[in-house]
Write a protein that binds this DNA or RNA. Structure first.
Lengths: 342, 342
DNA sequence: TTGAAAGCGGTACCAG
DNA sequence: CTGGTACCGCTTTCAA
């Protein structure tokens, strides 16, 4: 396949009998170039299908109009929605997005960041893995003078804009709803204790109980390691076969709630009559299961849009290390799994 | 934020009192450079954290080590799985992936292709939108001498490697399974008639009926426009309230099957006792609904891996326009929704 | 085994 | 308003 040599600025200049610089300026419509010349050059370029060599432009301007996006998992309703939102905003600003995933492994995250760096991205959107405890690797990219925006799972101590969901509020709303539906023995299947989202959701759960005069029982708070369906199943079994079984379970994610419901159904425990269930994230499947699952929607798509906006802005203003928090208020979506009344 | 100027080859050369070319060759371990020099340069580079300027390298070599990937929809179990597979293979070969989505709109697809082109991707992975009927826009990228690999939804007439699922076989296996379970009045909710996947699945459905001596009824084949849950619901209703309702429904995708099951449950029609249901794609939710949904697994992740492998190979060998078909044999996953026996 | 130098294709500064 | 030219950082050819 002989790569048909592409037309360059030099070719155009020679062909039209003008200088390369004039041609360049004409194509970019600089002030101080006669309309005539501009027209001449543009028409010629159009006619001959001139496409500027992006690599040359990137090289010269030291910009790629490309940003990196690193997520823990791609095959995931929440994250793919965030990416979708980010892509849509990126498109508006003429940015492209390099996507990478870490499978929640720090090792992969470090590799991904390095790769992004070497791909010369203009900036980075990242939701850190569960294994990530400090941001030393992330710091490298900031040190290069390239902006980073964190979203969803963030490292507090890193100075970057952050787009997060108000997990506390979401959890609070969910648990309050359970209480209002008449549940009073509410268990919570939480996540990894060092992860901030988990901590906040736990706080919301506790505060809701407190505010409604319900005493907390330590044995009703369990912590997942994998945040998996299997854990949901196992913990539900553990809870329901204990001395003092709960009458509602607030789950750290919808996936865990799926496991919980699977167990309850298998054990012939009626949802929501005997036990209420509520998830977090509002996955697509929440709608399809029966009973349909009440959940907390995190506005994933909007989160992606916002994160990308902040990144574009930071790139434009060459702002690195600005610590700014954009908090998204989640929305309780009530479905069948938590409706005891009515 | 003052961008700390990065170390360049020139700096290294000056510092070590050697020429830029020697430094370059040493770093790349050229033959004809003394081991001593190589060691000297590499150690210096290592110590001072030298990172080659990728944009300069790209520019010089006219390669970016980046490929584009265009899918109809990102928030989709199947496509995100394919992307995931592609990313994993890309990583092995040191490629990065630019991701874009078209929302099944030709307009967006054209834009995405143009953007990818201008981002100087080394190659392109694409699954075309439902609106795409011919490949003139795709041809542009081939004409530039850059390889394209199509996957899942492909344009037959384009000369590119293609990775597809044997839709015919998948449909055949699914319908045969229904027949073996004792269903005989099998309806099929198909997709858009001009899309190849739809045609093949329809063929498989028809052949299975034929092979088992079951007569086909035209009124039992319906065509979706959107391939949506709502359509599944509406068509199920149409079928079940008709003069001659079927006793099984083979759906073009799991999403449509979700709608079908929703209707059946609402109409108190027992699955799988009265009506069997089977989907296509084997989404994660197939496991979570009840009854769980039988489906045809397309090995999405492997499809992504394979497509990326073919692309890397094509890039390496500078092969553009090679027409090669890699067909993946899907796998029937039997769950509750189609098990009438036992 | 090494150095000098010519670009790659643009952009932008300085003169005129 | 336009042309000439230096240069971005690296690779590679040619000479030594």
């Amino acid at each position: 396949m002989p790569d048909r040599k592409r037309l360059t600025l030099k070719d155009i200049a020679k062909e039209l009998g003008i200088s390369v610089s004039t041609a360049s300026r004409a194509l970019n419509s600089y002030a101080g170039i006669s309309d005539e010349t501009i027209k001449l050059v543009k028409e010629f370029a159009e006619k001959h299908n001139y496409v500027p060599n992006t690599m040359a432009v990137n090289f010269r301007k030291n910009k790629t109009m490309t940003v990196g996006m690193i997520v823990p998992e791609l095959v995931h309703y929440f994250f793919s929605s965030v990416i979708s939102g980010a892509i849509s905003t990126a498109k508006k600003h003429n940015y492209s997005i390099l996507v990478s995933q870490t499978d929640e492994k720090l090792k992969n995250e470090v590799f991904a960041i390095r790769t992004m760096l070497s791909s010369s991205v203009d900036g980075l959107l990242i939701s850190v893995s569960n294994e990530t405890i400090n941001g030393e690797y992330l710091q490298e990219i900031l040190d290069e003078g390239r902006p980073v925006v964190q979203f969803d799972k963030v490292l507090d101590e890193m100075n970057t804009p952050k787009v997060i969901v108000d997990d506390f509020q979401g959890a609070y709303d969910g648990v309050r709803h359970l209480i209002q539906e008449g549940y009073s023995k509410i268990a919570h299947i939480n996540g990894l204790q060092h992860v901030k989202n988990s901590q906040e959701r736990l706080r919301g759960y506790q505060k809701a109980l407190l505010d409604h005069g319900i005493e907390e029982s330590e044995s009703w708070v369990l912590h997942c390691q994998q945040i998996s369906e299997d854990e949901g199943f196992a913990f539900a079994k553990e809870l329901m076969t204990s001395e003092n079984p709960p009458d509602a379970i607030f789950c750290i994610t919808d996936l865990v709630a799926m496991g919980v419901m699977k167990y309850l159904k298998q054990a012939k425990i009626k949802i929501p009559k005997e036990v209420g269930v509520i998830g977090f994230s509002n996955w697509d499947m929440a709608n399809f299961v029966s009973p349909s699952l009440s959940s907390i929607d995190q506005y994933a798509y909007q989160m992606g849009e916002k994160a990308m906006e902040l990144l574009v802005e930071a790139i434009k203003n060459n702002e690195v290390g600005k610590n700014q928090i954009h908090e998204i208020i989640p929305r309780l979506v009530v479905r069948e799994s938590s409706k005891r009344l009515s």
